[in-house]
Design a protein around this nucleic acid. Structure first.
Lengths: 159, 159
DNA sequence: GCAAATTAAATCGCGCGCGATCTTATCGCA
DNA sequence: TGCGATAAGATCGCGCGCGATTTAATTTGC
């Protein structure tokens, strides 16, 4: 691990949260030209990838399951999915056995768009020039970090 | 580095960009109760920390410098700073020597709020329970990653 | 068996992010 | 000196995130 943390830095630079924030937006900016080309926003891209599944064999999902996978709630997902339905990418159907649930399924156009979306991460990986090892290390650090903060949302605050 | 990357994962879980996205929002949710208590949004918190400086000795900054430090442009910063001015936290003054520039300076109330803001990251570090070493490793990985993607925003796209 | 509690999704309001455009000031240079 | 190019901010529109509330369906507990 390189020792690049300097003594005097802008205050935000020493914070994990700002580095996540800046890196996240930085990556989204990298994705932007590719996503614009296929007419998707970044969250829409995430939704399509999730519905597509790891090998293109994804099944329809409820709004709740989708939200759990993406870390969003219905207040974000509902309007997002409505826009995607408007774009002809997916359908929203009330579940038969539980009328509260709404099931999201890809249309043919949605499946095609999802295939195009699935090509993008490879392009980004190439653009960034990260080695296989760096990629893996970074992914592990991030997944571990997410695991560490998952579940402590119950306002620990000044206990 | 633990070997937790499974064979079959939801598609987004294998992406660095989604892990950044999810971790960033996760951290912002951790900050939320603390920031709400002092009446700040997350970007406002970043602005105050930056204006305060590493040791509380920060100097007034132009909108552009502030944006460079935070990775924002005037289309995001201008309304944000205007709201913070409305809240009495800072002043916006046209520069004398260059009438295009607008200089941002903390008010007394802003300085006080910035001191309160500076307390928060320590609380979060405690809540997350990250070891000193994990914190340092994570920070290094993120800063390295940001360095890797900095500057390749010139639409490399399918070259 | 039915009212209260719980759950799923939708809706609303507000504050970002950001592409696109506009305004105004400074700079370059013939 | 003057005028086109550049630079700094501001403005506008739209799509998220998210807290708060609402609506409707299901589960529960008596």
């Amino acid at each position: 691990m390189s020792e690049t943390t300097q003594r005097i830095l802008p205050p935000t630079e020493a914070l994990i949260c700002f580095n996540l924030y800046a890196a996240s937006h930085g990556f989204i900016r990298l994705y932007a030209p590719y996503l614009e080309r296929i007419g998707l926003t970044y969250p829409q891209f995430l939704v399509l990838l999730t519905l597509r599944g790891p090998e293109g064999e994804g099944q329809p999902q409820g709004v709740g399951e989708l939200g759990a996978l993406l870390g969003m709630e219905s207040n974000t997902l509902s309007p997002l999915l409505k826009r995607m339905q408007g774009a002809g990418l997916l359908t929203r159907t009330r579940s038969e056995e539980d009328e509260r649930r709404v099931v999201i399924a890809l249309t043919e156009a949605g499946r095609a768009r999802a295939e195009a979306a699935a090509e993008v991460p490879g392009c980004i990986a190439k653009d960034t020039g990260l080695s296989e090892e760096d990629y893996h290390t970074t992914l592990e650090v991030l997944r571990k970090l997410r695991g560490q903060i998952a579940g402590l949302d119950g306002k620990p605050a000044t206990e």
